[in-house]
């Protein structure tokens, strides 16, 4: 993690100590020491993670060990099979899509995918889709609608890829069409922001009946660095921009942009991916259960009402 994430330092130090002690021969006195350190770690984690600033949350949301889409898919869905390609130009590994089952219910699953190591990061294009990624997502969503299957999307991207080829092939058009078509889907759409919700690239799979967000995930119209560069003329002002833009799950719930916040384990999702997944599962289950009670033809109407309300103005 970068130097900015100094807040994690004391936790890392404790973890290292515990690891070192655990590696040594077991001995009652040492065990007591380990237990004490564990206790301390858990307390300190809670303390630090319940007081994160918006900028610190941004760093947590981008943490290299944070669970990614494929980790959630492996743990939450059965029988997942990935499908590839937009049938127009190419496949895009920055966005995965496929079909599987959620608690036995067949469904479509779509999410941004980042890479863990350098090679993977390049293949996944750092989780930044090109137009073909968004078009693949829409193709799979339309298929889900055809077979009356609910759709789960997992959002985790810095944003749509700002490259020459992406522009040539209509990045803006691909996103815009997804927004319009998602609004009209006659099946439940459940969106979860698991890490970074970066602008249009996030929203392009984010128009859902329920929008769920992990406790330390962030969702914003532009990255704090980008906003700082434009408005403060200095990207070092990113922490200020992060605070000013209100990008945390807690703030977004207050302004009505998201519906639910899923608690993360005391030291953040990356400290215990397994538990994170377990904490998310009941939220997805409940959302699905509620949405399945609504008539398919009614869903676009309800979704329209939900997004119609968004915004703040005076009359």
């Amino acid at each position: 993690m970068s130097a900015d994430a100094a807040f994690e330092e004391p936790l890392l130090r404790l973890r290292r100590q515990i690891e070192e002690l655990s590696a040594q021969e077991s001995e009652p006195a040492r065990q007591v020491e380990i237990d004490e350190l564990r206790e301390k770690l858990s307390k300190l984690s809670k303390e630090i993670y319940s007081n994160l600033t918006p900028w610190q949350k941004t760093l947590v949301a981008r943490h290299p060990q944070r669970p990614y889409t494929l980790d959630y898919i492996a743990a939450l869905f059965e029988d997942f099979t990935e499908v590839h390609g937009d049938r127009k130009f190419a496949d895009d590994a920055a966005l995965v899509a496929g079909f599987g089952r959620f608690h036995g219910q067949p469904c479509a699953i779509i999410g941004h995918q980042k890479g863990r190591n350098t090679k993977e990061k390049v293949i996944r294009n750092f989780g930044q889709p090109r137009p073909e990624g968004f078009r693949k997502a829409l193709r799979v969503m339309k298929l889900a609608e055809k077979f009356n299957l609910p759709i789960f999307t997992l959002v985790d991207t810095q944003g749509a890829y700002p490259g020459l080829d992406a522009e040539e092939r209509g990045q803006a058009e691909a996103i815009a069409v997804n927004l319009r078509e998602m609004a009209a889907l006659k099946v439940p759409v459940i969106v979860t922001i698991i890490g970074e919700g970066g602008s249009g690239g996030a929203l392009a799979i984010g128009v859902g009946d329920r929008v769920i967000m992990l406790e330390h995930a962030v969702y914003s119209v532009i990255s704090p660095e980008g906003c700082a560069a434009i408005l403060w003329k200095n990207s070092a002002a990113a922490p200020e921009a992060a605070a000013a833009m209100k990008i945390t799950a807690q703030d977004l719930k207050k302004i009505g942009v998201i519906d639910e916040i899923v608690s993360e384990p005391p030291g953040g999702a990356h400290s215990d991916p397994q538990q994170t997944v377990m904490l998310l599962d009941p939220f997805l289950e409940r959302a699905l259960h509620e949405l399945q009670k609504i008539k398919p033809a009614q869903l676009p109407e309800e979704r329209y009402k939900k997004f119609r309300k968004m915004g703040h103005y005076e009359k």
Binding site: A176, R180, E181, L203, Y219, L231, K246, V257
Partner: peptide, 20 residues
């Protein structure tokens, strides 16, 4: 940018209206 995520949501809102 000064309206943060609410600006982003206008994209969804208008596109949903266009679908109608």
């Amino acid at each position: 940018m000064q309206e943060g995520i609410l600006s982003l949501m206008q994209m969804a809102k208008i596109s949903a209206a266009l679908s109608q």
